[in-house]
Design a protein around this nucleic acid. Structure first.
Lengths: 345, 345
DNA sequence: CTGTGCCATGTTAGCGATAACGGCCGCATC
DNA sequence: GATGCGGCCGTTATCGCTAACATGGCACAG
């Protein structure tokens, strides 16, 4: 046992050298075998692989990356993992990166510009071969880092602004406008808004801006609003709905900045025998899977999360048909899903 | 503009050398400044920092890690990001790692042993300084890699088994037993189970095992069961509940393997005017925040996710009061939250 | 004025891999 | 039999940084 070559008792970590000694070839040949690169005869290949397996050798990518000046990492920087929207983007990214040898590495900013700056710096210090980062708004320093990185950058989720390099997303302003138009067209007139109190959630802000501008164009305004931060979004949705409706009982439509609070609001309305969508209409945003499980379908707008992840990954992986990795702006079309909470005319 | 030193036009990436040239000191001194290590006079420190900022220099950790044989990364390997339980574990990990200089890097296995093996291999190739990995069951090769890694390993979520090194979690068998006992004590007798069809979700399996063994001890059995895979868990919860109750209308309790399908079931029952908890009792598992937003509180059992993340991170970071980083098994106590869906006696 | 010690900085030698090139050998070609 | 070429494998020189040690200057004691 003490001499078991695969035992942890080895104090000195294994290197290519150990494998090359064990298999009687040079380190270079071992390296070639383990990377499937260059010409190696079948016989020695087998010998090397056997030795590596026997020893339990795991290549040291730190050294490999330094020598080859190539790193198979793609940094993915997002605001949060806990609201179901970004995990789906990640799924799209992973799908596409799967067979490219590239690997996503996730950084989370918690919607804080300072943290974003720090996370970006950390990521860049590993010299990734591409960056996918949510949003277009960031600190001066962060933008400078992106501009100087010398690798493909894709800013995702949003296209209302000026990207550093590439952008893949939707126009949240248009999404907000579109929703407002649908609501007005359905005959609703007294409209309330419920959202998060996050100064740095620029996409929610843009949706509201678009929403309000379309209302104004129709001669209407947002008559009341309610904001929250932290806690269970579903519960907050209930609470805010109760608050806004008791304060402004005449509202006939509630626009929620995300599906989860919208779902909470919907459940509250159903529980309080408020006729949806006749008396009060409701709509959320994101198109999260969860709403499919509700007793009645909340109107929402799909944010194209999976597709955004996929397209962004294609750009950094150089997998696009046209081979472009720079200067692209891809605007996807969010689809309105009217569900059961907007009157049909 | 073309000569702007901070412009991306620099084709050659920046190195310590560039900063040392720009500030008139040796590379070593620059390195010391940027790492806050060793003695450097205030004056030169300022000069170096100014130069680094001016150039937009970002240190190359690949080289740094190779030279120092130290990597500030902790691998966190989990089955999924999309079910709300692991993001919370990550939150706990991040909190504790925050001020240690260590950084979590997440790998996702999708409940597949093959992927776990691959992800682990990838992670180890970056020579992280610790590993936090969900579950105790894994392939032979994966276990061998962990054993040979020579770094602190913490297996999380579960303690029913033999850890490679450390473990932090709860006993899912006991959790299942405990729930069954509470259900039986509340007077329910005809019990159904609804869960996922995931052969590799060992924790769900153990909960069911514990659950059944406690029922048997009480002279009962699980009378009917329903399984699902994929899709919106909330919706599946509705569908499965409808299916099981129409097949076995006499059931008086439904035990769900997670809160999300439990919530779906609860909503279905409320919609179909089934008296909860009098006629049918319900319970889930995990204690996710979401259930707080439901019209009535689903009984559940807190899985201590945040605490698991924290304790695991403390071990790999060497932050425990006793300084131990090896051989620990920390069993946390899941708390039964009876909510409103189990009869009170 | 010399020795002692410390502070601030420089020098040297890797860390573990890979790129680039070189060499040897065997076989086909003319 | 000389030539060429391709398959297979080894040698050498980095990659960018840091540990460890070396050095020079200056203050201070004796």
């Amino acid at each position: 046992m003490a001499k078991d070559p695969s035992s942890a008792l080895q104090r000195r970590p294994l290197t290519l050298r150990d494998v090359s000694d064990a298999s009687g070839v040079s380190e270079m040949t071992v390296s070639r075998v383990l990377r499937n690169r260059g010409d190696v005869s079948g016989a020695t290949r087998e010998r090397v692989l056997a030795a590596a397996r026997e020893l339990g050798y795991v290549p040291n990518r730190i050294a490999g990356a330094l020598a080859s000046q190539r790193v198979n990492l793609v940094a993915v920087i997002i605001p949060s993992l806990s609201n179901m929207v970004f995990p789906e983007v990640l799924t799209g990214v992973s799908e596409v990166l799967e067979d490219t040898g590239l690997q996503p590495v996730v950084g989370v900013t918690n919607y804080s510009p300072e943290r974003e700056e720090k996370v970006l710096y950390e990521m860049l210090s590993w010299r990734p071969s591409g960056i996918i980062i949510a949003g277009l708004e960031r600190s001066h320093a962060a933008r400078a880092m992106l501009e100087n990185a010398g690798i493909p950058i894709v800013e995702i989720m949003d296209v209302d602004g000026t990207p550093v390099d590439n952008a893949v997303g939707i126009s949240h302003r248009r999404a907000g406008r579109h929703m407002a138009e649908a609501i007005v067209a359905a005959g609703y007139r007294r409209i309330g808004f419920l959202g998060t109190m996050m100064p740095y959630d620029h996409r929610a802000r843009k949706r509201l801006e678009g929403f309000e501008s379309a209302l104004i164009a129709a001669g209407l305004t947002v008559e009341d609003r309610e904001f929250y931060s932290g806690g269970s979004a579903l519960l907050k949705g209930r609470e805010m709905t109760e608050a806004i409706l008791s304060r402004s009982p005449d509202l006939d439509f509630l626009y929620y900045s995300n599906d989860l609070i919208g779902a909470g609001g919907l459940l509250w309305c159903l529980n309080h025998a408020i006729e949806v969508p006749e008396k009060v209409g409701l709509a959320g945003f994101n198109g999260v899977e969860l709403v499919q499980g509700l007793p009645c379908h909340l109107a929402t707008m799909d944010a194209c999360r999976l597709e955004i992840g996929r397209k962004a990954a294609e750009i950094v992986a150089g997998k696009r048909a046209d081979g472009a990795t720079s200067g692209l702006v891809i605007e996807l079309e969010p689809k309105l899903e009217p569900g059961d909470t907007i009157r049909r005319r």
